[in-house]
Measured scan of single mutants.
Amino acid sequence: NQASVVANQLIPINVALTLVMMRSEVVTPVGIPAEDIPRLVSMQVNRAVPLGTTLMPDMVKGYA
């Protein structure tokens, strides 16, 4: 099963993503693939993302 990107903490809106904010985990439904974590660094989410939430492509500005 493919690992997805999961919030490692509350990720506020309009804050640049850092490695420490994200972890990889096998979850259902599948979200952004874990291998895209380096690409996500410095991008921003378009809504607050609670701890443990799977990041979906539509949550990250400029990802999709």
Rank of each mutant, 00 (worst) to 15 (best):
V30C: 10
D36V: 08
V41W: 03
T53N: 08
V27S: 05
V41F: 06
V5R: 01
L55T: 01
S4W: 02
V5H: 02
N14Y: 07
E25Q: 10
T53R: 11
E35V: 06
V45W: 02
V30I: 13
V15N: 08
D36C: 08
V30Q: 15
G62L: 09
A34E: 08
Y63I: 04
D36F: 14
M59N: 05
S24R: 11
T53Q: 15
E35M: 09
A3M: 14
V30S: 10
V26Y: 14
L17C: 03
N8W: 03
N1I: 15
L55G: 02
R47A: 07
G52E: 04
N46S: 11
P33V: 10
V41A: 05
M21Y: 05
Y63S: 04
A3E: 14
N8S: 12
P29E: 07
V27T: 12
R39T: 09
R39M: 15
T54G: 02
V49A: 05
L10A: 11
A3K: 08
M22L: 14
G31R: 02
I32S: 00
L40V: 06
T53M: 15
V41P: 01
Q44F: 14
V60Y: 02
T53A: 13
P57K: 08
M43Y: 12
I11L: 15
Q44E: 13
V49N: 02
Y63N: 04
Q2R: 06
T18D: 05
M43N: 04
N46R: 13
L17W: 02
T18A: 09
D58N: 11
A16S: 11
P57T: 06
K61W: 10
Q2V: 10
L55P: 02
A34V: 11
K61V: 10
P12R: 07
P57H: 09
I32C: 04
N1E: 15
T18W: 03
I32F: 02
P38L: 10
S4V: 02
A34C: 08
V27G: 03
G62R: 06
P57I: 05
A16G: 13
M43F: 12
N1V: 15
M59Q: 05
P38T: 13
T54H: 02
R47F: 07
A7Y: 02
V5G: 01
R39N: 14
N1M: 15
V60S: 02
Y63Q: 04
V49L: 11
L17N: 00
P57E: 07
V45C: 06
V6I: 15
T18N: 05
L19R: 12
M22Y: 02
P12Q: 09
G52T: 02
G31M: 02
P57S: 07
V60P: 01
G31Q: 02
N8F: 03
V6T: 06
M22I: 10
G62D: 13
V6F: 03
L19I: 08
I37S: 04
A16C: 13
V20P: 11
D36S: 09
A48E: 14
R47I: 06
V5Q: 02
V5D: 01
T18Q: 11
V26G: 04
V5I: 12
N46K: 11
I32Q: 00
T54E: 01
V27N: 03
E35C: 10
T28S: 13
D58Y: 11
Q2F: 14
I37C: 05
Q44M: 15
V60K: 01
A34R: 05
T53W: 14
A64N: 11
L19K: 07
